[in-house]
Design a protein around this nucleic acid. Structure first.
Lengths: 340, 340
DNA sequence: TTGTATGCGTTATCAT
DNA sequence: ATGATAACGCATACAA
């Protein structure tokens, strides 16, 4: 109940029909210039705000996009949202933002709500960690336009914008191998059912296999995307007998690396002398750490921009083709890997 | 065009009226148990999703609230949004998030769009930097429910949740005066027309006057909320003749302080020996800086939670009273002030 | 150029 | 318990 003024009210005020008012305000042809002026003036005077809800009901279009992110405090996602906004702002879409907090149940609830709101499309970075695609199959089958970003769910017949995670992960691992001659390298992983979790892990494996280095089971620790997970995973590695300890650790992302660093420090060990470590994300904090973190910079803003563009095209273009877009990362070499 | 199934379709399928279907699905009385079961089963089978747009049109309620923030990359706001979401998630409101990027023109555009979407209310942290309140007067007069947070616009007859900026600013300044015996203290300010900018500056002035210390004009530098502004402002201070240089600097927020620190480092000076500095916000980076930053912790999550609660009460309660809520901050003493 | 009728999907109201 | 009708605010299609 913001503005109770409707087309009808303006029409009555001026003794014309609602249609004339509608035409005048929407700049449609076949309206007398004088009438038009009067209408516009009166609308302004009466404080008229068009009712988008009613418009949507008629046009079956809400000019609205839903955005579902798994984590709002992780700096990557706000930056993606900025990229999305650059696009939506120019093309007059409003965004519904929902944060799933890494919980698939909340994600599902959010998507349902967005469907009920009849958003024109949804941008999703999924928190899903199980191999059951029925939920998104159903959503997509129902005709909802979807574009995934960063954490993609594949083979759903919809577009996706992500970072070349696997290759980047290989590159940063190879840096440890070729530049620093490390052989005993551990990996702190994210959930394997989230695409970035899987891809980054596979990139690590690629590098290790290429250089025929051992992939010891005890050096592959299941962690997660957040600091605590990295901390806990590192504790596990540090609990190994000293001679079995890895020389270097590759982590699934920077928050995880930061948690691991905390564990290393608490143990009284130093980086990179005792254990080298690298991250993934280029978190805002990476450069400021006591030992600046070597990591992979992800162009978050660009991911958001591309995903939004693709979604809007998908919305406005009947048969916009499915596309898998990858944006390129950049290795950020700092000191935590052993470089100076 | 997500789900084309309507009440009518289900009704036809079952040979009943749309009303019966509506009643059944909404758990209303006066529906035969058997019919109800059938309806629910059929709705599920056909993939029915209620059309919230149509519901909104008839009920004049969208179950939607708009959130307008000035800056999404500044960590404070995502944390506020998390607090807001905790509340909206429980009470089944969806949020429309818009980021004004510190531009009042974008903020106005966003508010207009939210009004057109007929959101039930709006949470705003304003980017406005001019003393012209006509915009919000009009918005509020039109009946739109508004609650301001963090950056409040006062005397508009609406509720506001903020941090006790002025007192906190006095406290951190007094820490420099009483604990460290600084007398030559400079201030890098934010825009004076934004409430937090003004209040924090006034808190600084309060402390200086209380201890009868000089408020030299050249030591009050107009900066801004972002790093570059802090950097530029510090450059100005560093350009002063050495004997006129301040011993300590109070800044309007952490990003600003971080920019200033950069300028100090580039000049080859050290913190806190040559110049002590304090911030405001407790940015995620504050603790990780080479010289950890003394600052004021703002309970962002709590600000969001309270603001959302108040707005929802305002929406659902005809005459919910206007309220000015302040949440308490906490001094975070680290090393940049001279403490060890 | 302007107006009337109709429908978007849902629910309130008043029948039956 | 169920149904018919009207209404929410707007725009399309057609008529005047």
């Amino acid at each position: 109940m913001s503005s109770d003024v409707t087309l009808k009210h303006i029409a009555e005020e001026l003794g014309v029909s609602a249609m004339t008012v509608s035409r005048a305000l929407n700049d449609r042809p076949n309206v007398d210039e004088k009438t038009k002026e009067k209408v516009i003036e009166t609308a302004k005077r009466m404080g008229y705000t068009p009712n988008q809800v009613a418009k949507s009901l008629v046009s079956n279009k809400t000019h609205t996009i839903g955005v579902v992110i798994p984590e709002i405090t992780h700096a990557f996602f706000p930056e993606v949202v900025r990229g999305i906004e650059e696009v939506t702002n120019d093309s007059d879409y409003q965004i519904f933002l929902t944060n799933a907090n890494e919980q698939f149940s909340r994600e599902k609830k959010a998507v349902r709500a967005l469907q009920a709101q009849r958003v024109d499309g949804i941008l999703i970075s999924s928190s899903q960690t199980v191999d059951d695609f029925s939920f998104y199959k159903e959503i997509i089958n129902s005709g909802t336009r979807v574009v995934f970003f960063d954490r993609c769910i594949e083979n759903m017949g919809v577009s996706c914008v992500s970072v070349n995670d696997r290759v980047s992960s290989t590159e940063i691992t190879e840096h440890l191998i070729t530049e620093h001659k490390f052989k005993k390298i551990a990996y702190i992983s994210g959930p394997q059912d989230v695409s970035v979790g899987h891809d980054r892990y596979m990139g690590f494996v690629d590098a290790m296999e290429k250089h025929t280095l051992p992939l010891k089971e005890k050096w592959i620790v299941r962690g997660g995307f957040q600091e605590e997970a990295g901390y806990d995973a590192m504790q596990e590695l540090l609990a190994l007998p000293v001679e079995e300890r890895p020389e270097a650790v590759v982590t699934v992302n920077d928050p995880s690396a930061i948690g691991a660093i905390q564990a290393i420090s608490e143990k009284g060990l130093s980086i990179p002398e005792d254990i080298a470590i690298v991250g993934f994300t280029d978190d805002i904090r990476a450069e400021l750490l006591k030992v600046p973190l070597t990591t992979v910079r992800q162009p978050a803003y660009e991911v958001g921009r591309l995903a939004a563009l693709k979604l809007i095209q998908t919305i406005e273009n009947k048969d916009e083709p499915e596309e898998i877009l990858e944006v390129q990362t950049e290795l950020k070499i700092r000191s935590s890997c052993g470089c100076s």
